[in-house]
Amino acid sequence: MIINLLINGKLHAIEAPEEMPLLWAIRDIIGLTGTKFGCGVSQCGACSVLLDGQLIKSCSLPVSGADGKEILTIEGSSENLEFLRQAWSDGNVPQCGYCQSGQLIAATSLLDTTENPTDNEIDAVMSANICRCGTYTRIKKAIHKAVTLKNEVI
């Protein structure tokens, strides 16, 4: 079927089987490879994207469920994502970097809904994302730092 996806502000009309997970439509049909495959069963968060502002695991949502909706991937931009990018760089967070697309998108969703998250609030959202290199303490610190950066600007 023809599916319309508004990804990072750009409209993509694609032909895809309706049950194909959004992840593979993004990666293999549209060709945006920043969103990662990690487990295929909503266990690791590497494929995280925002769908109409909601944090989802794109490996587990049929592409038909995203038809006509707005999607933010790591190739895109938002106010909170930019502060997080800056904080990630300031804290030299990534090691291999593979999970960081998903980590950044999950953190964006967290800051979109919680202005100044506590450690527990960070744990609650970010524990859905696995980092095999083990950069968790840096990620947590960077999320706090992003809040600081954001407050400085205002």
Binding site: L32, G34, T73, I74, E75, R85, S89, P94, Q100
Partner: peptide, 9 residues
């Protein structure tokens, strides 16, 4: 590689 790691590139 920070820029690439934080932009999915």
């Amino acid at each position: 590689d920070l820029k690439d790691f934080t932009h999915g590139t």
